[in-house]
Design a binder for these strands. Structure first.
Lengths: 111, 111
DNA sequence: TGCCTACATATAGGGAGTCTACATATAGAC
DNA sequence: GTCTATATGTAGACTCCCTATATGTAGGCA
């Protein structure tokens, strides 16, 4: 997967995997990989800063926990994050449909 | 349309609109707008440098023409550009399907 | 004891490409 | 004479994803 392609869609991806259950960064990376059938390998250098950015702008909150001797920062959606996710989802559908249409080869209507 | 979302998909868009008929930059911008039903307003500062880049790496060739007193640089696909377009198209389908799956809310299989 | 892998978080710096803003120029309408 | 559409182009900013690196714990294995 070309890394550049992800640009601008990372928020939606991140928000989406923690929609139903709060997760910590490492688990988010694994969830992304699992849900994409292995297609998405998002590096830690992408995910951690992105989560902090999302928290900074109010879409997430986080809290520390220690599990099995390891420190975890668990993120969960705020109301604003939930709203943002819905917006991102509909933006995605519009985007995908738009690009898909332009990319589709063949005859153009009244072209 | 969030500008960042286009990142990494611009090549495919550009290549796609000139697949069947060579066009100059300005016409490419109009074609993009038309084919997207008005959703894509790609600025000249994006398109011209991108076309030059695509030419530099061998996916396009260009030639100058003067029509109605105005100079146009018309771009057409090379063999490599045609091949690249096909690769980009299949990359797009994979990408769209992957993101769509991760973004889809609801029950997960064996989650 | 030491090494390796998995788990877990984080930051600095790089880089690629899109965007804003601006510069330039012709043609035609009003 | 001014405005809009046509037409191309560059400089510099900006975003943000990536690579590389740093730190530390836990557990398996030799």
């Amino acid at each position: 997967m070309n890394p550049d392609a992800l640009r601008g869609h990372m928020d939606a991806l991140l928000l989406s995997v923690i929609e139903d259950e709060p997760l910590h960064g490492y688990a988010i990376i694994e969830a992304l990989q699992e849900r994409s059938g292995g297609a998405l390998s998002v590096p830690t250098g992408t995910v951690y800063p992105a989560l902090r950015r999302l928290e900074r702008i109010g879409h997430l909150t986080s809290e520390w926990a220690t599990v099995g001797g390891r420190r975890r920062r668990t993120y969960r959606l705020t109301g604003s994050g939930r709203k943002h996710l819905e917006e991102e989802r509909s933006a995605w559908h519009e985007f995908a449909s738009t690009i898909g249409n332009v990319l589709r080869p063949g005859v153009r209507p009244a072209g």
